[in-house]
Design a protein around this nucleic acid. Sequence first.
DNA 1: ATCATTTAGACCAATGTGGTCGATTTAAGT
DNA 2: ACTTAAATCGACCACATTGGTCTAAATGAT
Lengths: 212, 212
Amino acid sequence: MTHLFESLEEEKKQRILNAALNEFADHGFERASTNRIVKHAKIGKGMLFHYFNTKKDLYHYLLHYCLDKTINDYLKQIDITERDFIERFKKAGELKMELFAEHPNVLNFLGTFFLADIKELPEDIQAKYTQLQKEGYEKIYSNIDYSLFRENTDVEKAFKMINWVIEGYERELKASLKGQSFSELNMEPYFKEFYKYLDMLKSAFYKKEEGK
Amino acid sequence: MTHLFESLEEEKKQRILNAALNEFADHGFERASTNRIVKHAKIGKGMLFHYFNTKKDLYHYLLHYCLDKTINDYLKQIDITERDFIERFKKAGELKMELFAEHPNVLNFLGTFFLADIKELPEDIQAKYTQLQKEGYEKIYSNIDYSLFRENTDVEKAFKMINWVIEGYERELKASLKGQSFSELNMEPYFKEFYKYLDMLKSAFYKKEEGK
DNA sequence: ATCATTTAGACCAATGTGGTCGATTTAAGT
DNA sequence: ACTTAAATCGACCACATTGGTCTAAATGAT
């Protein structure tokens, strides 16, 4: 067995993962409490240190887990053959929402991690993290069809603005649905509204379509 | 003397305020440590509890202080006779930056407070908070000249998008200048870039100017 | 029946908590 | 110069929480 923890029943595994991710996301590494983790995970204290020898090991395991998940379930899924920037982002936004619906704390946890000190982490985690950054940049900016934008547009700035709008909508959505179980929600109307924003962005920054 | 603390030398007052604001902003009420506050403020433990009887009293004092500052130095300064939404926001953005340059932790502290439980606070603080919300809403949305927007624009959505772009720029600026003492920085080039974004927003959402 | 693996949580020393208090310094008043 | 009051410090308190250990019981496997 590579890792005791891996070969647990799925449900218990999830309970522990969720409890730990939430705790670290809320308090950061040092101020996170293993006591609260075991309480929320409903396991005995001993077990946590049986599966993961130390608090730090647990933290590193979570980092691997979350980095892998975002790379595989999010980044790798982004379709780089779609050359329309906004369209590509539309699909990326959906993927992100799906990941968030299934595993909200994965993204929460990574979000807080970005702020922490990266230097004193094991090399393999640093590597995975830089991979994510590099691949993320490519997935967003490579192979974009600039000719869709109006002439004289500062495309750099347009990219950023589009990005900020999408992030803004995501934030607002999360805030307005706070507490509700995202995964058991009918997301369709929210996607519809999301698309309206994207359409406005298109007519704001793209050339008017010829014909039609 | 209404409050011992008020009649201290300005410099010591600021040291204590900064230390406390940072501590609460970083850790929230419960996990904030009075020990760390006195250490960073470079005063003895006794003094803190001499000025403010309890940790909670200190917290409430800070809330009053920050709410007053944002209401007076920011909200009240927004010029409501400017009917151009983006222009009004341009000035508001500058005010916000100025406040942030002088007292970065005031906005940081309030930012974290919004997430905390509002219910179990003294009534006067709740009142001040709702005042801020109500006045903020007015200062943003009242007396706007809708005719500037292109026809068929969903103005509600345009408002939000403009808002998100401005917030996005502010975030990026803060991140890229992290660590540097904002107040002793020449902000002009950043404002220039800020204006470029605003111009793009205008040509994205406003009617084309007649003539000229 | 025997041995190995899981499990829980009481327990540990160490550290940190909000808050107090006596001792000492400084300031003020006369 | 003398007295009194205010300001200041940090050792100290009882208590809570920390990451981590260990024993003893439960469960599983053969």
